[in-house]
């Protein structure tokens, strides 16, 4: 049995340097690797290309790394809710590539699954189709989109075991499983790390083969962006 357990985020990120491409799991602030983001902030590496559906908020998530100017480029589908992001985008300090969310998810899935490109209808006839190969299948037009892979993928799961098997909770799964497969080195931080054999093999979401390093994270804040209650007036 291969033991993949490391002590924490610092050890998991020990060999990460400037100018790498990172995938960071999460949708909004849901299912983001809080411990590793804090460690990246502390480590101070720069020139990062971050592939993540969103860019966090001003004072949490990837927003923290934007504030310290550690991010050179964001590849995302939606980057609202972040004033510092907007400022850097408009001033040209930050490169941004916006990708339809389903295309982003599938490009990452393709990266992990060894499929270099695929056709999708999303974005046909729009400005994101510029420069892309177009082909018609059974009367409908599709765009050729390429895989995405990363030097490091950093994902967050609910439970994990010492062999790297992962289980997610609720909608915190989102981009984490595809990213886990698309990283040259995948680091998983989990809320609860258990011995191999504890998790039911029938219920594993990410098989351990995709995960190189795993640790139990500490002090999850799990900040909520839009606390909406049954009693909230909308």
């Amino acid at each position: 049995m291969i033991n993949k357990v490391v002590a924490g985020a610092d050890e998991a990120l020990h060999d990460i340097g400037n100018n790498v491409t990172l995938m960071l799991g999460g949708f909004g602030l849901c299912g983001i690797p809080e411990n590793c983001i804090a460690a990246l902030l502390k480590k101070g590496i720069t020139g990062l290309t971050c592939i993540s559906n969103n860019a966090g908020v001003d004072d949490f998530g990837i927003g923290l790394l934007l504030k310290t100017r550690q991010v050179k480029k964001m590849i995302s589908s939606y980057v609202g809710e972040n004033a510092e992001f907007e400022r850097q985008l408009l001033s040209g300090e930050l490169e941004v590539e916006l990708i339809p969310q389903g295309t982003l998810a599938e490009r990452i899935r393709a990266g992990g699954a060894g499929i270099p490109a695929f056709f999708t209808p999303a974005g046909v006839g729009t400005e994101i189709a510029q420069g892309k190969e177009v082909r018609t299948f059974e009367g409908k037009t599709y765009l050729l989109e390429h895989w995405l892979r990363a030097d490091f993928s950093i994902v967050k799961a609910w439970k994990g075991d010492t062999t790297g098997n992962l289980v997610y909770k609720g909608t915190a799964r989102n981009f984490n499983p595809m990213m886990a497969a698309a990283g040259k080195i995948t680091i998983a931080e989990v809320e609860e790390l258990v011995p191999a054999g504890t998790l039911d093999p029938n219920q594993i979401h990410t098989p351990g083969i995709y995960v190189q390093r795993i640790f139990e994270g500490k002090g999850y804040e799990k900040r909520i962006e839009q606390r909406t209650l049954a009693s909230t007036k909308v």
Partner: peptide
């Protein structure tokens, strides 16, 4: 401000 298309392009295409 450009916030991004999120899932809208995928949804309307399919």
């Amino acid at each position: 401000m450009v916030k991004g298309m999120g899932g809208a392009m995928d949804l309307v295409a399919s």
